[in-house]
């Protein structure tokens, strides 16, 4: 594939749309855990909050600075996990991780990843995979902390 085609594969219309009009952006209450993740190589940052209730991801809110890929990825993440059970959301997370770490060889499942399939082109650019995964790693971290917090409360 040519460079131009690779570039267009990365900067899909869907990604640019999410970048310009991000979903669920902003920090909201209530939340059980808030995390701050940084990509040390480029300085991209995300602050992300997770609100869980009865094993369901009730809300994911975030404030982020970074490139189009990292911003769009955070937007797509919230679309995919809000309203799902934690277990289902973790399964989506695992699929997205597999896609991003597949170096462009993984065929994404649109039924699972929806707009997330647009990131298949990003997987071919190793320097940008971390951009796409920043908010996803933050979400996993915050969710684990939320589960720990609720576990402690029950005791």
């Amino acid at each position: 594939m040519s460079t131009q085609a690779d570039l267009d594969a990365m900067y899909q219309e869907i990604i640019l749309d999410h970048y310009k009009h991000p979903h669920h952006k902003g920090l909201r209450d209530p939340f059980e855990a808030e995390v701050h993740h940084v990509n040390p190589t480029c300085g991209d940052e995300v602050t992300l909050r997770v609100h869980l209730a009865d094993g369901v991801v009730e809300d994911v809110s975030y404030d982020a600075v970074g490139c189009s890929i990292s911003q769009a990825s955070a937007s797509v993440l919230t679309d995919l996990v809000i309203g799902k059970s934690v277990d289902d959301a973790m399964a989506v997370h695992a699929d997205f991780l597999t896609l991003m770490q597949g170096k462009g060889t993984v065929e994404p499942d649109e039924d699972v990843l929806e707009d997330g399939i647009a990131f298949a082109g990003v997987a071919k650019f190793p320097a940008r995979v971390k951009c796409a995964l920043l908010s996803w790693m933050a979400w996993k971290d915050a969710t684990a902390q939320s589960l720990d917090a609720s576990g402690t409360e029950e005791k």
Binding site: L7, C42, I69
Partner: peptide, 12 residues
């Protein structure tokens, strides 16, 4: 345009 995106496009 974010700097990453600039660097990516000019690299192309």
């Amino acid at each position: 345009v974010h700097p990453h995106d600039i660097a990516q496009v000019v690299d192309s």
